[in-house]
Structures are given as structure tokens and as C-alpha cells.
């Protein structure tokens, strides 16, 4: 068992499931001989051939439309969109069809597909390559949205997504694609969707985050420990449906909560978590819920990216403000 990166863990899960499941196919742009622009699909073509590893024409709406059709026939397509900034043409298919085929036919036709895309900033790419618009999909009934934050969770959650009988949007934090390595055992074991993961137990404050921002969130937690503040860190992992039970239980113990996300603030996933805490956990709060988020601006090109992305300092400052309430 060697240590691998998050993108290698994605690859490992795809490889594993292709071997196990003859109904699985992967499709997208440059995913064949090139192995995907981030190399997530490297080696699949050599191993599984052109019948199951499909380099498609350049049309995102078509890629996902075709995936919906394949899934309706009981195949398990995993469609890759190169960057989240190019995912918008697929919204029609995801919102109008993938999310509702089962409902529209009262279970006669289903849509067991995965839509994968790298998301988030931090790689100094051109405009449109740094989006974090997970909330758009999280708003849609019938979809699941999953975001891994580490190699082990990328492996286990992607397996779960592929095996799920309903459509899953699987967003990969590309900033941490190669940031860390972990030992990942290729044991084919899926992680549960629908639950979050407590990465660091703590008793003074609950920090909730997902994807790449967990990196800064965990760093903040380390620094807080030096200051005598014991922070619990929760990896949301499944953005939809949100496992509020774990968050409510944690906040019930800590009485304080800071939510950290890269996405813009308004109508975002953090807004949903804060609202649910207000509805169901208000009485256990000692302090207002705070959010550390991207700004409600267009995601800036990379010269200003550092000002946009929530930094460890911003997280620390929000936590300290929260701790001031007695």
C-alpha cells in the first residue's frame, strides 16, 4: 500500500470499479489517451478499451445528456467535465432529467450516473477555471452532491457515488489534487454518502467545512489549540443531503459554530447549514453562527485570488470573535 494523492485516489476508484462493474463506462473530453487534463483517468483506456472509455466530441450538454440515456438503460456512466466553470451547459440535463427521471416515471426509469468535475480556485488557471458553485446542484431535489477532501475519502466516496442508484455530482477540489498523500488501500470499500466525517474532535467550537478549505480549517484548528481553544473539525463531504445530525450533535456540545467555504456567500451551502442550526439548534448556541466564505463577487482571476479565498487568518478571526461571547 503506497501513499497516493487525491487525484490518484480518484483514478484508483475508477480503475477498481471498472474491473468490478461491466456496466460502468467513463466519458468526457480528453479522458482517453490523454488520461484527462488532470490525469484522473490515466490508464483506463489501455486497460478497458475504447468501448468503455469514451473520448467524446466537445459538448458538455451532450456528454451529460448521453450519460442520462446510458444510465436510463442501466449502465453506470461516469461523465467528466473538465472544469466546473464549463459545467453550466449540463445543468439542463441534471436539473430537468437526471434528477427527475425516477420521479417522472415513478421508479420505472432511473438514472444511476456520476458527474465528476474538478472545482475550486488556487491553480492559477485562466478565467472560468476556479469556480465553486456546488450550491447550484445542492439546490436540486433528486441529486446528491459529494465533495471529498482527502485521498482516502476521494476513493471511498467515489466508489459510493458510482454504486449509488441515483445521480451523484462528484466535485473534486483540484487545489488539493496533489497537495497531500495518504495510504489508500484498494479494498473496494465505499464510504457512506449522507454522513459527514469528524476529522478532529474538540469541545470548544465546531468548524464545518468541505473540499479544499478543510486544509485551512485544520490549520486554524492547530493554531487554536496552541491558544487553548479546542476546535472540532467536521468534513461535510456530502453536500446534499446534509448530515445535520452530526453537526447538531457537535454544536450541542460546543455551543459555537463557524462554517468555512470557498464559494460565494449568498444562498450557499453555508447558508443552509446556518439556517438549519438556527431552526434546530438555536438553544444550544452561546454565540452567533459565523461564516467565512468567498465574497459575493465574480471569482477573481488569480492575481486577486489570495484576497478572495478564505485564509487561515480569516478563519482564526471569526473563531476568536465567536469565542468572545461568554
Amino acid at each position: 500500500m503506497t501513499d497516493i494523492t487525491l487525484v490518484e485516489a480518484v483514478n484508483l476508484a475508477l480503475m477498481h470499479e471498472m474491473a468490478r462493474d461491466p456496466d460502468m463506462v467513463v466519458l468526457g473530453q480528453d479522458i482517453g489517451i490523454n488520461g484527462g487534463v488532470f490525469r484522473a483517468t490515466v490508464g483506463l483506456l489501455e486497460k478497458y478499451g475504447e468501448e468503455r472509455v469514451l473520448d467524446t466530441p466537445l459538448a458538455e450538454n451532450m456528454i451529460v445528456g448521453a450519460a442520462v440515456g446510458m444510465a436510463a438503460q442501466g449502465l453506470h456512466p461516469v461523465a467528466e467535465i473538465q472544469f466546473m466553470g464549463f459545467i453550466y451547459p449540463t445543468i439542463d440535463q441534471m436539473v430537468s432529467h437526471a434528477s427527475r427521471l425516477r420521479n417522472r416515471t415513478r421508479g420505472r426509469i432511473t438514472c444511476p450516473m456520476v458527474l465528476r468535475a474538478p472545482y475550486g480556485g488556487g491553480i492559477h488557471a485562466p478565467e472560468h477555471h476556479s469556480e465553486s458553485t456546488e450550491a447550484m446542484f445542492a439546490h436540486i431535489p433528486g441529486l446528491r452532491v459529494v465533495i471529498p477532501s482527502s485521498p482516502t475519502r476521494a476513493y471511498g466516496l467515489l466508489l459510493a457515488a458510482i454504486r449509488n442508484p441515483d445521480p451523484v455530482v462528484f466535485l473534486e477540489p483540484k487545489r488539493v489534487y496533489r497537495l497531500m498523500k495518504q495510504a489508500v488501500e484498494d479494498n473496494g470499500e465505499a464510504l457512506p454518502l449522507d454522513t459527514c466525517f469528524v476529522l478532529r474532535p474538540g469541545s470548544d467550537i465546531t468548524l464545518v467545512s468541505w473540499g479544499a478549505m478543510l486544509h485551512e480549517t485544520l490549520q486554524a484548528a492547530e493554531q487554536l489549540a496552541d491558544e487553548g481553544i479546542d476546535a472540532e473539525v467536521i468534513d461535510l463531504a456530502t453536500i446534499k443531503p446534509i448530515d445535520m445530525q452530526t453537526i447538531l450533535e457537535s454544536v450541542g456540545r460546543t455551543g459555537r459554530c463557524v462554517i468555512v467555504q470557498e464559494a460565494a456567500r449568498t444562498c450557499s451551502v453555508s447558508a443552509e447549514i446556518a439556517a438549519r442550526l438556527a431552526e434546530e439548534g438555536l438553544m444550544s448556541l452561546f454565540a452567533p453562527i459565523r461564516r467565512v466564505t468567498g465574497f459575493d463577487t465574480v471569482m477573481p482571476m488569480f492575481r486577486l485570488e489570495g484576497h478572495y479565498m478564505p485564509s487561515t487568518e480569516r478563519i482564526l478571526s471569526a473563531v476568536r470573535q465567536t469565542m468572545e461571547f461568554a
Binding site: 450538454n61 446510458m70 438503460q73 440535463q93 417522472r104
Partner: peptide, 23 residues
């Protein structure tokens, strides 16, 4: 396997390609 009625115009055409691929 017949598909349900599709209201958003033409959105079913790419799906038809996916179904045909599966076949």
C-alpha cells in the same frame, strides 16, 4: 425502456444517443 414524454424541447435528443450507445 420506452422514455416518458419530454417537455424541455430537444433535451431528449442527446439522451437518445446515450440509450442507443447502451444498446
Amino acid at each position: 425502456d420506452d422514455f416518458p414524454i419530454c417537455v424541455p424541447i430537444s433535451t431528449h435528443t442527446t439522451q437518445a444517443a446515450g440509450v442507443a450507445f447502451a444498446v
